[in-house]
Simulated scan of single mutants.
Amino acid sequence: MHLIRTLAASTALLSALASAHVTLDQPQAVAGSAYKAVFKVGHACAGASFTTGITVRLPAGFRGAQPMPKAGWTAVVQRAALAEPYESHGRRISEDVVEVSWRANSADSALPTAFYDEFTVRGTLPAQAGTLWFKVRQSCDVGEVDWAEVPASGVSTEGLKAPAARLQVGPAAAPAHVH
């Protein structure tokens, strides 16, 4: 009986790992607020032993992105001109971070498939409520996975093989009425 339970648990774990993907720790936030996007990585690519890189393509409207450094990894930001510039602290911002990448500095720093880790970017959310999709490319010692699929309509990722990380941005709370 113990062997059957062990086999059932192992099968369930393998099924969960096979369907796992890069997700956000906090999948909901308030419009216009500061947001710490924590990307959870639960395993390496199929057939790989290590995750060696993570690249996050930031959605339009996610402003002023700053990556959190990781010991043993090199973080790099890519900036680009914005289609819609914005004001921040009295300055017009016409170029911003559009992509953040982390690369393991050595094989010893790479993330083994049996371990879990997080990669973090802080920024400001758009003032409008809606859905933001963070597209994440996971590089491994063998291959890569581009977690970039977005549903054609709606927000359900059911049936997608490599869904992007979804953030549901809710409306900002109305100011309290004070007498």
Rank of each mutant, 00 (worst) to 15 (best):
T52V: 09
A71K: 10
E95N: 13
P85W: 11
D96S: 10
E95H: 09
L82M: 10
I93M: 07
D96K: 08
A71W: 01
G53K: 03
R63M: 05
R79F: 05
A81M: 10
T55A: 15
R57K: 09
P85N: 09
H89T: 05
Y86H: 08
G72P: 09
E87P: 01
L82W: 11
T51W: 08
S49L: 03
F62Q: 07
G72Y: 03
R57I: 06
V77Y: 01
D96Q: 05
F62P: 05
M68D: 12
A83K: 10
G72E: 06
A83Q: 12
P69L: 12
A75Y: 03
S49K: 08
G53F: 08
A80E: 13
V97T: 15
S88Y: 14
E84L: 12
F62E: 06
V77T: 15
V76Y: 00
T74D: 03
Q66D: 00
W73K: 00
A75V: 04
M68I: 02
T74M: 03
E84C: 05
V56R: 11
V97I: 14
K70F: 01
T74C: 01
S88W: 15
P69W: 01
A80N: 13
P59C: 02
R79M: 15
T52K: 05
A65W: 02
I93R: 03
P67G: 10
W73S: 00
A80D: 14
V77R: 11
T55S: 14
T55E: 15
A60Y: 07
K70S: 02
Y86E: 10
Q78R: 13
V77M: 13
L82T: 13
A83E: 12
P85Q: 10
R79N: 14
A80M: 09
G72F: 03
P85A: 13
T51N: 05
I93Q: 06
T52P: 01
A80V: 04
I93D: 06
G90V: 09
E95T: 15
A71T: 15
A80F: 01
M68V: 13
A80Q: 14
R92D: 00
T55H: 01
Q66E: 07
A83W: 02
P59R: 07
A60E: 15
Y86P: 12
E84N: 15
Q78A: 12
E84Y: 01
A71H: 04
R91L: 13
L58P: 09
Y86W: 15
A83G: 06
H89V: 05
V56W: 07
L58D: 06
P67N: 11
F50G: 00
Q66P: 00
M68W: 05
